[in-house]
Design a protein around this nucleic acid. Sequence first.
DNA 1: CTTGTGGTTATTTTT
DNA 2: TAACCACAAG
Length: 800
Amino acid sequence: MTGLAELFIGTMHGYARDLLQTWVSEAFKRNVLSDVQARLFIDRNSRASGLTVVDAQVNGVPRKLKRFVNSPLYMQVLSILREDDVNEELLPESLSDALLSYRKLLRDKNYFDFTELLRLTVDLLDFDSDDDMAGALIRHVRDHVRYVVVDEYQDTNPIQEKLIQRLCRFGANLCVVGDDDQTIYQWRGSAVSNILSFTDRQEDVRKVTLDDNFRSSPGIVTLGREVAARNDPDRLSKNMVAAGHQTYERGDMLALTFDSAVDEAAWICDRIERLRGVPFTDSPAAQPRGLSWSDFAVLFRSVSKDAGELVDELRRRSIPYVIKGLTRLFDAPEVKACVACFQYVLHEVAADDVVDAWLGADVGVTRETLETALPILEEARNWQQGERWGTYNIQRTYLRFLEALGIREETVPPFGGGAAAGSATRGELVFYNLGKFSQAISDFEQIYFQSAPQAKYDAFVKWLVYQAPDYYAESDADAGYATPDAVTIATVHQAKGMQWPAVFVPAIRKNRFPSKRHGGLNVFHVIPEAAVTDADRYRGTEADETRLFYVAVTRSQKYLHLTHSPGDSAMYRARSPFFDFAAKNQYFLTKEPEAVPAGRLDPRARHEVPEVTLSFSDLKYFFECPYEFKLRFLYGYNPPIHEALGYGKSVHDVMAEIHKRAIDGDIVSGLDADDLVDKHLNTPFAYPALRADLRRAAIRAVRRYVEENRTRLENTLYSEQQIQVRVAPGITVDGRIDLITRLDTGETSIVDFKSTERAQAEDITRDQLHVYAVGYQELTGRRADVLEVLNLDEKGKTTS
DNA sequence: CTTGTGGTTATTTTT
DNA sequence: TAACCACAAG
């Protein structure tokens, strides 16, 4: 192998998923639920998921968890039980039962949640290499995994550590990279102990300490060192040294207090305006350039709580900024209008209310257009007894309605007056929000597709009104991949791994940073605390907050401003001990000097090319229709669920098993077709008669393929081979080639299966195969001789 | 320095 | 609803 396709680069969840869906045939058909979908799934199956079976112990009094109300808490419980080191003997019986019941439910409905991907992979990796289910997986790991490299190791949790250990079970070389001072996700389960005791747990460890800091000035580096040292001795000793080219000058680092948050915000804006254009050198070799908007970052402990005044001030002064997590999707007027549409379907609001909501949203739609579109919603409520439920499709109604409205990005009126957030136009923002709403419909409908129409719309509208606003609280309003020249407003967590020439950390208030612990029901009312090793870390410790502060101050390359202003209530009035500690540092001035750094250049933003990875189907949409591609890929619109959805994937899964067995010398016969189809067929939205039809069709296709392609099977080289192709700078396409075989003539053939009659335009197929051929060549260094498309439905076969 | 009361608040986010 | 904090009283 010459290419990098043999190298997996990605997240642990991604790798676990890849392993399962490549080597564990029982898992091929299981789909991964997103967090939102998992929560819907748990509420929809509140008993079988164990939600309403479990007790919370409050002051010794048991109380059952409630559907909808406590599902987020229960999800946390389910994750901890499967991801952490748990002493199962200490769990109440009802809790153990609930967990078993939830895992069975996932299996029965052919789903994974994120946790289950890791859990199942780890469990299977304990089996023997001749095990029926896990054998192929174990053999793959044993024979092919040579090197395991883990980045950000300090943020691994117990199950991830187990996964790493299992992958190295047969002697693979292990390299972990991390900085224990930057463990900021303990409250999510990550265990610093993993990195702290790594050298004790492993044999033959070579430890390399990277003390040189090339990012920041000596002032910043010294401060960082002092902050980190607050956690001594519970950390790995190191001695960070400034080794870069950034210099420290008095006045670079300021620690200031203000009488109010408004004054603080005003000063930050003043300072940004004063520093703009000041010369800055990115690297030793680079020419100096003038600081631009995007060189400034304002980092908050909590953006949602404390960033309000600053945002107002930035907007007043027309300083461009980008911000995450402050805009709530369901607060957007166009999304409220969408909600009104479905309330109208249920007769909960009148037609006038729908019209008013859309006109109020000011997205360029007229009253006349709305009146012609309303019948689409009225049609949606005409469900009839005995008719197929799948006919009542929320997404289809939504898309038809939007189409009737005829909204386009360019027909949406621009922002009135004030400056736009970031660089996105209002049209793009509105489209993005409407796309998110489409995603919300998909999430809901996947879980509730099989409910009767009345119940389905009922549940949907209730969910829209009561649940969804919280589910989709943070929709990042920066649509697309553009990196605008704007001030960044972010939480300290989001800033991890980033750097800016100038950083502001405002609102360093007592009880906020470090954050106080909070009340209310928590996971340890459900799980006995003694059953979890080091349970306290989930609640957030002082050491955790110190590390967070360390991350905050070390994001700066040169200019750093720590500020405090009293919050609104007594609780947040006082200065944080962090502020006082930092202000004592010799490099800080507690008054801004009169003189601004000298010299002035034209502001010029550091330019970054965004990296984009597309799946093959994304690319296919692009070829078919660039506008539809934009709708799907950038804005997240989803097509309506089709009742036969899953059929094509199931047939592909059968083929994958057949070819994988063929590589092992096990040639399947036509008689196995029934069993194979029953094992892999997953059509969750099909009504019984359709399912039976699909099953018969699949068996016919598989049987015919196996009977007519014996030699092809015997000559199988690769099945479902992962490829990656760089189609343009910054754009990578990820895909899998169904099959690579050797033909009788000795030629190599790349085969793509089509499972349905749905015709795909000839030239698109050609483009697709071309990408495959390039991928194959990058993978093996050889050219493929033949490209084939095999249509499994009839005897169709195209060769190009 | 301890204890009681009344008031306030409920973060951070990835797969 | 639970837990933590500020403040005041002893």
